[in-house]
């Protein structure tokens, strides 16, 4: 409730204008207002990483940002990554390695993993583990995720 504001932003290459309560956080806005339910909510206090998504090229916690703060920005969610092929090799590696079980952490995990393979690119298991430590996974035990990220880092280095 309370005060609302109009925001205009680009979400997965589509322009959106909505009136939102100022207290609404970004991930709830994407999930509830836009129906982009691929981003998940695990803690709502910035710890678990399930809500990780890309705002203006930077991976952020969707639960720690307000929707009104995203006014004018460009957002890519897991749904967007599913379509734009930027993470196609990472998706394949996740499937091959069974890097997901329940899949609840997966959208956030993919976002962090993509950040790693695009910007850090160090083919080192410990460095990958360190980078993914902001994303909790309760199912896999992480090893298969590390395997997938490492495979993609190595494949991309060969290209």
């Amino acid at each position: 409730m309370g005060q609302t504001e109009n925001i205009t932003l680009t979400v997965n290459d589509e322009q959106v204008t909505e009136s939102v309560p100022v207290r609404l956080n970004l991930v709830d806005f994407l999930r509830n207002n836009l129906g982009l339910t691929g981003s998940h909510v695990g803690c709502e206090h910035g710890v678990c990483g399930a809500c990780t998504l890309e705002v203006d090229g930077v991976m952020v916690r969707g639960c720690l940002m307000l929707a009104v703060q995203a006014d004018g920005s460009s957002i890519t969610t897991i749904e967007g990554l599913g379509e734009n092929q930027r993470a196609a090799d990472l998706q394949d590696a996740f499937k091959r390695n069974n890097s997901l079980q329940c899949g609840y952490c997966t959208p956030g995990m993919m976002a962090s993993a993509l950040e790693y393979v695009e910007t850090i690119r160090n083919p080192d298991r410990d460095a990958i583990r360190e980078h993914l430590s902001g994303n909790y996974c309760r199912c896999t035990g992480y090893q298969s995720i590390v395997d997938a990220v490492l495979e993609v880092v190595e494949e991309r280095a060969k290209r």
């Binding site: 999930r31 339910t37 990554l81 599913g82 499937k95 997901l100």
Partner: peptide, 16 residues
């Protein structure tokens, strides 16, 4: 797996 990786899962909270 493909469906979950693309953010097309159907968890209870996704239901409207």
């Amino acid at each position: 797996a493909q469906r979950l990786i693309e953010g097309r899962g159907q968890y209870v909270d996704d239901l409207q």
